[in-house]
């Protein structure tokens, strides 16, 4: 396999709430390789954004405690000073945010916002910066780049703005891109365009990508490898084909069964009962997903499930998945497979 660009080891991100620290990312380890798209998927509140912001060093350190390691280019990002980190952010690490309506400064022109990272990371004349910016705009599929260059964010549609946000992330040729729900706020057709664009760009620049999403459709279209997150923990990691063809963790299977386009029309969808617990209320002993599969009898759960490899490259945080069944599923019912092919 290609070289790793980012190695997260036992990362724990805790927030201070009324004097106590609660972990939103709880002992997560994950590696991203060159030219690899690793998707992180889970319901909202599972700690996906908290993870992304930890890598980028964007948490407010007064209220956030970061433990573990985020190794990038043989240094631990978590122990770098702000000024050292600023030499890496925007250069080697690029970030794409969820909402293109709010991710751009309303008072600066598009051109200025794309050039800004170059101010800090590249020694370029202003003419060279402009040239590069226009080129970037073309690369993200904007045709009238000369005009867009001097326009303001509010003059562009959501899809156009998201292209600009991508151009900013790519401005200094990053080796790792972190995209936090890059298509969630977009219309279906625009989502498809942005997905195709990101795939195409990745083909060109061969960077690693961490793609955060709650949409398994986006995962299926884009990811090479998938980490499923629940309540701050990774509960399953697998290659994308393996995950969709052979999902093992009950949470992964529940997610797949709740997607309308994945189920037979008009058939009842699987409902994951309850909600993702808040970080204060989360019970951190035993299996965190147990309260949401109430029909599974107590003795069938594992006491403290750990992530272990069940097949090469396929990790699951549960050993009792073999016995797991949905309440509506008859034992041995072959028609009830998780993916409809």
């Amino acid at each position: 396999m290609a070289n790793p660009v980012l190695e997260i080891k036992n990362l724990r991100t805790s927030f201070n709430i009324k004097g106590n620290y609660y972990a939103a990312v709880d002992d997560v380890s994950l590696t991203v390789h060159e030219n690899e798209v690793v998707a992180i998927v889970g319901e909202s509140g599972c700690g996906k954004s908290a993870l992304a912001l930890s890598i980028m060093g964007l948490h407010n350190l007064k209220t956030t405690k970061l433990e573990g390691q985020v190794n990038f280019k043989s240094q631990n990002l978590l122990s770098l000073s702000a000024s050292k980190l600023n030499k890496i952010r925007g250069k080697d690490l690029g970030m794409i945010f969820q909402d293109p309506m709010t991710a751009l400064n309303p008072l600066a022109t598009i051109g200025r916002q794309i050039e800004e990272p170059m101010d800090y990371h590249m020694k370029l004349s202003s003419a060279a910066k402009k040239k590069r910016t226009l080129e970037l705009l073309r690369r993200v599929g904007i045709k009238n780049e000369q005009r867009i260059y001097s326009q303001y964010p509010h003059e562009l549609s959501g899809g156009m703005r998201q292209r600009v946000v991508i151009a900013i992330a790519l401005a200094c040729d990053p080796v790792l891109l972190i995209a936090d729900e890059p298509t969630t706020a977009l219309d279906v057709t625009i989502q498809a365009q942005i997905m195709d664009l990101m795939k195409e760009l990745q083909n060109q620049i061969k960077s690693g990508i961490i793609l955060i999403t709650h949409d398994l459709g986006v995962v299926a279209e884009m990811a090479d490898r998938v980490a499923v997150m629940y309540a701050g923990e990774v509960v399953e990691i697998a290659e994308v084909r393996e995950l969709f063809m052979n999902p093992l963790h009950p949470y992964t299977r529940s997610l797949l069964n709740s997607i309308p386009s994945n189920m037979e029309d008009k058939k009842a969808l699987h409902v994951i009962e309850g909600i993702v617990p808040s970080i204060q209320k989360l019970d951190r002993t035993g299996c965190r997903f147990a309260p949401r599969v109430a029909w599974v009898p107590e003795h069938e759960h594992e006491e403290s499930p750990t992530l272990h490899e069940v097949e090469p490259g396929h990790f699951v945080r549960c050993t009792c998945y073999k016995n797991f069944h949905f309440p509506e599923e008859k034992v041995g019912d072959e028609s009830y497979v998780t993916t409809k092919s």
């Binding site: 702000a82 909402d99 008072l107 900013i168």
Partner: peptide
């Protein structure tokens, strides 16, 4: 969010204020 964007570009803290937050 746009302040997060600015930080993710590697803009130093002082400039994050003068160029982004204070202008707005």
């Amino acid at each position: 969010d746009f302040v997060k964007t600015a930080r993710s570009k590697g803009v130093p803290e002082g400039k994050v204020y003068t160029r982004h937050i204070l202008r707005n």
